[in-house]
């Protein structure tokens, strides 16, 4: 039987390894899951103490503040904006919360004040960027210094200790629902909401549109300013929630919370999750997976007895490798699509 000649490769029968390659190259979440599986597999093999279920519950618990902050940052970065002030927000919210609790002797008022700081700083950032038209990276960089300075000046670099020792407040971090810790539940609820908003609503589509081309979005009648403003509020509020959790961890407002580059870690994780630095590309689930991958590497190394400060070396290398992997994956996706797979 004579073989059939195809005029265009796209009409060629799909077969062979390229079919599978195309499948993996196109599915961002799946390929990140594969990386996570490889990382977990490596530690399961190399470190016996990682073969307990508790380790993984603890992992989720530890990364929950980062996950929550990453939700806000991912949404902001999808619209091609940045927020560098979230690291300082952790300290600002923590100190404000505990101070308010000490002043008013009421836990709920303290938490309310903590959340209000998120709203306040978010509105300030949003106002400066969208209405005064200041560049977001610089504005939030200034805000980062300003907030950290206010915290340092107010606390004089001493931790603010909760005088009433509210056990209710520490339950925010230590509490459990079934086997799951409260912060983990909080993180997953926020991720679910963000996923729903980004994929299922007009608001979410508008965020992608703004990130893709702000000018075009404005011309086509999308309320760009209002949406950007709301995104800054969301990102600051997410950071404030993380700040509350971290304050609840030790029941103190710590002046140096997040000082070791929290904002850069979160941005790095979000970028690893495939969110483009120039906006318009990426999704929230991949960003969350990337946070888990970075968290797992850190946790695994700690189990192996590598000091936290020395881990930075490995995390840096992994970050580079993962970003390069995304590049190669995208290139393959395009190439295989052109070949008709």
């Amino acid at each position: 039987m004579a073989s059939v000649q195809y005029a265009h490769p796209a009409k060629a029968p799909r077969q062979g390894w390229k079919r599978y390659a195309a499948f993996w190259a196109r599915n961002e979440e799946l390929s990140l899951l594969l990386i996570l599986a490889i990382v977990v597999g490596f530690f399961l093999y190399a470190e016996p103490s990682s073969r307990q279920r508790k380790v993984y519950w603890d992992l989720l618990w530890e990364v929950s503040p980062t996950l929550i902050a990453a939700v806000g940052i991912a949404m902001l970065m999808l619209a091609a904006q940045f927020d560098l002030s979230i690291g300082s927000m952790l300290a600002f919210t923590g100190v404000a919360t505990v101070t308010a609790m000490n002043k008013t002797d009421s836990m709920w008022l303290g938490i309310l004040v903590g959340l209000a700081t998120g709203l306040l700083i978010g509105c300030l950032n949003g106002f400066l960027v969208t209405y005064v038209r200041m560049q977001s990276l610089m504005t939030t960089l200034g805000m980062m210094f300003a907030l950290r300075g206010l915290v340092y000046t107010y606390t004089n670099k001493t931790p603010v200790i909760d005088e009433n020792q509210f056990t209710q407040f520490t339950r925010l971090w230590f509490g459990k629902v079934g086997p799951v810790r409260t912060p983990v539940i909080l993180a997953f609820i926020l991720i679910a909401i963000a996923w729903f908003v980004l994929t299922q609503t007009e608001y979410g589509r508008n965020i992608y549109a703004i990130g893709g081309n702000e000018q075009a979005a404005r011309v086509s009648g999308i309320p760009v300013r209002r949406i950007l403003f709301s995104l800054f509020v969301i990102s600051s509020c997410c950071a404030a929630i993380s700040g509350l959790l971290i304050a609840a961890q030790t029941d103190t407002g710590y002046f140096d919370a997040g000082v070791q580059g929290f904002e850069l870690t979160v941005i790095a994780a979000v970028v690893l999750g495939g969110v483009s630095m120039s906006g318009g590309q990426g999704n929230i689930l991949s960003a969350a997976l990337a946070v888990l991958i970075l968290g797992m590497i850190g946790k695994g190394m700690r189990l192996m007895g590598i000091h936290t400060t020395q881990q930075l070396l490995v995390i840096g290398v992994v970050m580079l490798a993962a970003v390069y992997f995304h590049r190669v994956r995208r290139r393959w996706a395009v190439r295989l699509r052109n070949e008709g797979y």
């Binding site: 400066l128 200041m134 610089m138 504005t139 960089l141 200034g142 805000m143 980062m144 210094f145 300003a146 907030l147 950290r148 300075g149 206010l150 340092y152 000046t153």
Partner: peptide, 9 residues
Amino acid sequence: WAVTGIIIL
């Protein structure tokens, strides 16, 4: 710190 931030702003 605060002054640096405010100057940048």
